[in-house]
Design a protein around this nucleic acid. Sequence first.
DNA 1: GGTGCGATTGCA
DNA 2: GCAATCGCACCA
Length: 190
Amino acid sequence: MRRPENPRSRLQVEFYRRPTLDVARDLLGRVLCHRPATGRVLRGRITEVEAYDGPEDRASHAARGPTPRNRPMYEAGGIAYVYLIYGMHHCFNVVTGDAGYPAAILIRAAESPRAELSARGPGRLTRAFAIDLELDGTTLVGDDLWLEAGAPVPARAVSRSPRIGVDYAGAWAEKPYRFLIAGHPEVSRR
DNA sequence: GGTGCGATTGCA
DNA sequence: GCAATCGCACCA
């Protein structure tokens, strides 16, 4: 019988350099940690994510090939991909897979005993965790930004659905690439 | 160089 | 239902 992982142990690059859907499911229950330039470490347990997987994924920023913005998606897994959406909100992604294969996972929600760190929705989450463009391309195994093992989420507690806000992606909009912990449903209607 | 729009959110 | 707000993708 394997000894349970220390919940405070940090995820290493091997965790991220796996198939994107596997990483997405395994991100549930992990603890996002950010140490801002000033202040204490911000910690929150991930409750909802969406996978954007490969060059064929029409919902992905990489659907039309590499651009200055999506460059981090083509790097080897284990770094952040952060972009500005609607001119006002940041979205935080975890880059996955091998170098040259564009893939990332959008972190959509997290919970914390600290109420101000419980956030539903990708824009609210980045605001709560003080994540902005400065963290674009940052390693996820450094001392500024990292993930901790947290507590495992059993299979029965994982639910899936199509991704939010990607109606333009044709058949790819139907794929169940959104993973969430049952009992932590998205609040936003749609 | 010009134009259209988005992996969202909050308010009417 | 719709405005906010701007970097960037795309076209010329």
